[in-house]
Simulated assay, not measured.
Amino acid sequence: MDPAWLQTYRWIVENGDKRTDPWLLVYSPLPVTFIFLCYLFVLWAGPRFMKHREPVDLKAVLIVYNFTMVCWSAYMVHEFLVSSWLSGYSLLCQPVDYSDSPLAMRMAKVCWWFFFSKVIELCDTMFFILRKKNNQLTFLHVYHHGTMIVNWWLGVKYLAGGQSFLIGLVNSTVHVVMYLYYGLAAFGPHMQRYLWWKRYLTRLQLTQFVILTVHAFYNLFAECDYPDRMNALICAYLVSLIVLFSNFYIQSYLSTKKKSQA
């Protein structure tokens, strides 16, 4: 009789989407777990390593990185939109199409690209550390970046498509705007007068979380061939993000405004 942990591991790797199992980082949870643990290690060791060193000038790297992420996010918006539109997706209830049809595979592939983009976005944290912007390494930042790779590994492993496409579509749209802001900001302080819309980024992020929470909550009670456990997990996770981003918005903008008026 195999130990429980080995039985659990076998169930995890053997019950995934057979279409996505051969793709990079998908088949086993070990690679993404290793990435997550490395991320936590860098968070611990990075600031200590940089403590007595000068901040690294990453202006050129940040410009290239952020505008690359704009293009990548725009590509995913296009693929989510086209794949869902041509497949006749429903916004209210959309089961996963596990077939090997061209459109089903196209949707599965963009889900994988979305997951992989979350791995690449861990670079955001690395850049903060190298530039000694440790004030940006908040619980919100770490929680959001660290959990997204795990959540979307689960998505690609078991549910590459279906109504979870809406999360990828909405989040990729928001990231086009977000990385555009970061890309422009990377040019230097002279750009700040053109970036008055920074606070609206947080509002945009909160709006996406509310929309996606309502969507997932609705599907908890609708008769839809999509796992309720996944909808419940999505709801709980999005509510946590709403709380954290709301607190960030209040502390960053509303509290500051009150202090300036005092």
Rank of each mutant, 00 (worst) to 15 (best):
Met1His: 10
Ala4Asn: 11
Trp5Phe: 12
Thr8Pro: 00
Thr8Lys: 06
Tyr9Val: 06
Arg10Thr: 11
Ile12Lys: 02
Val13Gln: 06
Asn15Val: 09
Asp17Ala: 03
Thr20Phe: 02
Asp21Cys: 05
Phe34Lys: 08
Ile35Tyr: 12
Ile35Ser: 05
Phe36Lys: 02
Cys38Phe: 09
Arg48Ser: 13
Met50Asp: 04
Pro55Gln: 03
Asp57Gln: 07
Leu58Gly: 04
Ala60Val: 08
Tyr65Asp: 02
Thr68Ser: 14
Met69Leu: 15
Val70Asp: 03
Ala74Leu: 14
Trp85Tyr: 13
Trp85Pro: 01
Ser87Pro: 07
Ser90Val: 08
Leu91Val: 09
Leu92Thr: 13
Pro95Lys: 10
Val96Gln: 03
Asp97Lys: 05
Asp97Ser: 08
Asp100Ser: 11
Ser101Gly: 12
Ser101Asp: 11
Pro102Asn: 12
Ala104Gln: 02
Met105Asp: 07
Lys109Met: 11
Trp112Met: 03
Trp112Gly: 02
Trp113Asn: 04
Phe115Ile: 00
Glu121Val: 02
Phe127Asn: 01
Lys132Pro: 06
Lys133Ser: 08
Asn134Arg: 08
Asn134Ala: 06
Asn135Ala: 13
Asn135Pro: 03
Phe139Gly: 15
Val142Asn: 01
Val142Thr: 12
Val142Cys: 11
His144Asn: 11
Ile149Leu: 15
Asn151Tyr: 11
Trp153Met: 02
Lys157Leu: 09
Lys157Asp: 04
Leu159Ser: 01
Ser164Pro: 01
Ser164Tyr: 00
Ser164Phe: 01
Leu169Asn: 00
Leu169Asp: 01
Thr173Gly: 15
His175Val: 00
Leu180Phe: 15
Tyr182Lys: 07
Leu184Phe: 08
Phe187Asn: 07
Pro189Asn: 07
Trp196Lys: 05
Lys198Leu: 13
Arg199Cys: 11
Leu204Gln: 03
Leu204Asn: 02
Leu206Met: 15
Val210His: 09
Ile211Ala: 13
Leu212Ile: 12
Leu212His: 08
Phe217Glu: 00
Tyr218Glu: 06
Tyr218Arg: 12
Phe221Trp: 15
Ala222Tyr: 09
Glu223Phe: 07
Glu223Trp: 07
Asp225Ser: 10
Asp225Cys: 04
Pro227Val: 09
Ala232Phe: 14
Ile234Phe: 13
Ile234Thr: 10
Cys235Asp: 09
Leu238Arg: 00
Val239Ser: 02
Phe245Ile: 11
Tyr249Asp: 14
Ser252Met: 05
Ser255Tyr: 10
Thr256Leu: 14
Lys257Phe: 09
Lys259Thr: 10
